[in-house]
Nucleic acid binder design. Structure first.
Length: 212
DNA sequence: TCGCGGATAGACT
DNA sequence: GTCTATCCGCGAG
């Protein structure tokens, strides 16, 4: 099966921005947990000091980054899991980290998975989002997106008022040049963006309302 | 509302 | 032993 060119036909930073406003879903069988992507980060290969693939580092732990665009790269750090999608061709270790979604369906289940946490605390960070999905293993690591219970709707996307680029979160400060690079993208004004200030939240959540 | 520190687990030196 | 692509609770203002 031919891979979707969405994850290969332009820069990883451009792909990260294009993922904003799209729907990420996770099929758990009896229902579908889903939400709109509102925060992403791009990691751009062997030169990127902040990337797991920096300097060609490759092992079982980060193999997903080296796979063809559209492959899932799921890994754990501390007690949490992260959801990445590889971009570019095989052996070009770039990828996009999905950091936050605005929940849409399966919210009750997500609250249960988050042990009662509610509202924006549900999914406003990469570890929180995966906990809300109930992910407790790397089971789907290295699976192509289309052969997994996960899905990203590449055919529709919400219209976004304004995208803002910011430095990535929590990356090593060893090389300030890469630590400061603005490869984190957010839907401006959305309450589910991690660490957003209350005064920056907009009534429309940063989306342009379209009439049907 | 903020800044700080502790918890915690896996990969790497 | 060291270092994270984190999260949460606590205390000060």
């Amino acid at each position: 099966m031919k891979a979707n060119p969405f994850f290969t036909n332009r820069s990883t930073a451009a792909i990260a921005q294009d993922l904003l406003g799209r729907r990420l879903s996770f099929d758990i069988g009896k229902e579908i947990l889903s939400g709109t992507i509102v925060e992403t980060e791009a990691y751009v290969g062997v030169k990127d000091r902040a990337a797991h693939s920096f300097n060609g580092r490759r092992s079982q732990a980060n193999e997903g980054l080296y796979r063809a665009g559209g492959t899932l790269y799921i890994y754990s750090q501390r007690q949490y899991f992260f959801f990445d999608v590889a971009t570019q061709q095989e052996n070009e270790p770039e990828g996009v980290l999905i950091r936050a979604i605005e929940p849409e369906t399966g919210i009750e289940t997500m609250i249960k998975n988050r042990h009662g946490k509610n509202g924006t605390l549900l999914t406003n960070g990469p570890g929180k989002m995966m906990q809300a999905f109930g992910i407790t293993s790397r089971k789907w690591d290295l699976h192509p997106l289309q052969d997994s219970p996960f899905d990203i709707d590449l055919n529709h996307k919400k219209k976004i008022e304004k995208i803002i680029a910011l430095p990535r979160v929590g990356v090593s400060q060893a090389d300030p040049k890469w630590a400061k690079k603005e490869l984190r993208f957010i839907v401006s004004g959305n309450p589910y963006v991690s660490d957003i200030k209350k005064k920056d939240i907009k009534e429309n959540h940063g989306f342009v309302l379209t009439k049907n």
